[in-house]
Amino acid sequence: MNIFRLAGDVSHLVAIIILFLKIWKSKSCAGISGKSQVLFALVFTSRYLDLFTVFISAYNTIMKLVFLVLSYATVYLIYMRFRGSYDSENDSFRVEFLLVPVTGLAFLENYAFTPLEILWTFSIFLEAVAIMPQLFMITKTGEAESITTHYLFFLGLYRALYLANWVWRYHTEGFFDQIAVVSGVVQTIFYCDFFYLYVTRVLRGSGKMSLP
């Protein structure tokens, strides 16, 4: 555990809590892509199956449980509790275009051809693209509420901090997880355009981010 890894996990937790509280308090999921949230719940489900097979640390177990509970609770809020405010018309990204390639790649490129390892690889590749429906929805509606942009900022920052964590671990302990690093780079690159808009529009300009 190093400072980048801890900051990354905290940033990830902050992002998930920001989104959950936004929907819960505003009693609305307008502007939020339910598809992305389902994909994130799927990422955590397929990645954290080792909750039942190995105990790494209390921190590891607790964080996995928190991420799982909050992601499913968010999906519940969107599709059940506040489904009236769910904007299904603009949340039209074809997730099968993500799931099929990611599944295929997980079978091709993995560390071991075992169910747990393939599911872990699937979750790594899926996480890299899971935000696409949300980013697509923002380009379609042409705007995003400021709270949503803060959610996306911390979500994008978390994997960027993990990249720093992997650089640190490579130099201090020779650790190198090729699949996670390559996927993490791709994932962070997808946020670059958003980061630019976030800094230039949200932090400097008006609260709302409206795309050109």
Binding site: H12, V54, F67, Y111, A112, W120, I179
Partner: peptide, 10 residues
């Protein structure tokens, strides 16, 4: 591959 089967990260 540099298989890292120690999944200590989230």
């Amino acid at each position: 591959h540099t298989g890292q089967c120690n999944k200590d990260e989230l």
